[in-house]
Computed example of a mutant assay.
Amino acid sequence: MSRSKTVFPTKSKTDEAAIFKIFSVGIVTSRDEWLYDFDRQQLAKKVQFFCDFYEQEKVRWNKSNNKKVINDFVDRKIKWTSELEEHLLKNSSLEFNPDFIVTSTWRPFTKKYLYLAKIIVHRLYQQEQIFPIGKDNVAICLTIHKQVPFVVIATNCICDNGIGSRLSQILTLYYYDENGNRQDNITDWSLEKFQTYYNNKKIKKLDIFHYTYAVLHHPTYRQKYEQNLKREFPRVPFYENFQQWVKWGKKLIDLHINYETIIPITKSNAILQRHFKNQIFTKI
């Protein structure tokens, strides 16, 4: 790895002195067994039952004398949380809508169908800004925790909070405002820093996104900052040969997102294997 200079954070809560403007933890359903499934039709059946049963309990509650504590009243055939019980008390409706079934990244290289609706999902956090239904985006999912190895994985769909077996943070290329308009999530501040350091006004925000992904995956970087990556957000150094890092990051993101269509590396395709070794993380 080439010598690095200047390190700055990937995210900031207070201003734009970071690479990414907004970030979010992954989605928390608190009822994965009801809201996730590998089979779309099976998921639809489960959620339909859940919604119907909730509505039945709402009717039963409204017909009762309401003297019981709601926690003691509801039938536990479905997974209740305090928030869902509050919705029942507010007489909120829960109606199944097949348009709310989306593809999600549940674990690294593991996609599942997810039913994405406010009342039934326990915590959406800022996922509606970064992965609203029907909108495109690309995300870098990070798991930073002392109990598990540092996890970095790219995805183009909404992410579960447990993608790396502990709380995860999601950094995206874009976000969407309240009117549904796409906005750059790479800050102008970081663009100016990169263009100035490399003396190249042609550097784009997408290049910075790819560069960041390559750096976070480089074995030498991860070894050098191993202890930091167990307790704090990554800080990204400037390395020489910026465009080479951009190419590596772009290639890795393509591999990690489109893994289901990538040709496996086997003894029978030695040419591809040699090409992979030459292109990904050659020492510079």
Rank of each mutant, 00 (worst) to 15 (best):
M1R: 06
S2P: 14
R3V: 09
F8G: 01
P9D: 12
K11L: 05
T14A: 06
T14K: 13
F20R: 04
I22R: 07
I22N: 05
S24M: 01
V25A: 12
V28C: 09
S30N: 14
S30V: 04
R31E: 02
L35K: 04
L35I: 02
R40I: 13
Q42T: 10
L43T: 12
A44D: 14
K45T: 12
F49Q: 13
D52S: 12
Q56F: 01
E57L: 05
E57F: 00
N62W: 01
K63D: 10
S64M: 10
K67M: 11
K68V: 03
N71T: 14
N71Q: 04
D72H: 10
D72Y: 04
F73E: 05
D75W: 00
K79L: 08
E83P: 07
E83F: 09
L88E: 01
L88V: 09
K90V: 03
S92E: 13
L94C: 07
E95I: 15
E95P: 01
N97P: 04
P98F: 00
F100T: 00
F100S: 08
I101Q: 13
P108K: 01
K111H: 15
K111D: 10
L114I: 05
Y115M: 05
L116K: 14
A117V: 06
V121A: 06
V121I: 15
R123K: 10
R123S: 09
R123G: 02
R123Y: 13
R123M: 06
L124P: 11
Q127L: 03
E128K: 14
E128T: 13
I130A: 02
P132T: 10
P132S: 09
K135N: 07
K135D: 10
D136H: 10
N137D: 02
A139D: 15
C141E: 12
I144E: 03
P149S: 07
F150E: 03
F150C: 02
V152W: 07
T155H: 13
T155L: 03
C157R: 07
R166H: 04
R166G: 05
I170G: 02
L171K: 02
T172G: 06
T172S: 14
T172E: 03
Y175L: 02
Y176M: 04
Q183Y: 04
Q183G: 02
I186M: 05
I186D: 08
I186A: 04
W189G: 08
S190P: 07
E192S: 13
F194I: 08
T196A: 13
Y198R: 09
K202H: 14
I203R: 11
K204D: 03
K204T: 15
K204A: 10
V215L: 04
L216K: 08
L216P: 02
H218E: 11
H218L: 08
R222N: 15
Y225H: 14
Q227H: 10
Q227N: 15
Q227L: 14
K230I: 11
R231D: 03
F233K: 00
V236I: 15
P237R: 07
F242N: 06
Q243W: 12
Q243K: 09
V246I: 11
V246L: 08
K250S: 11
I253P: 12
D254A: 07
D254E: 13
D254I: 02
H256P: 00
H256C: 02
N258T: 08
N258V: 00
Y259C: 00
Y259R: 01
E260G: 01
T266K: 06
K267E: 14
K267S: 15
S268P: 00
N269C: 11
F276R: 15
K277G: 01
K277M: 04
N278K: 12
I280G: 00
K283T: 11
K283I: 13
K283W: 11
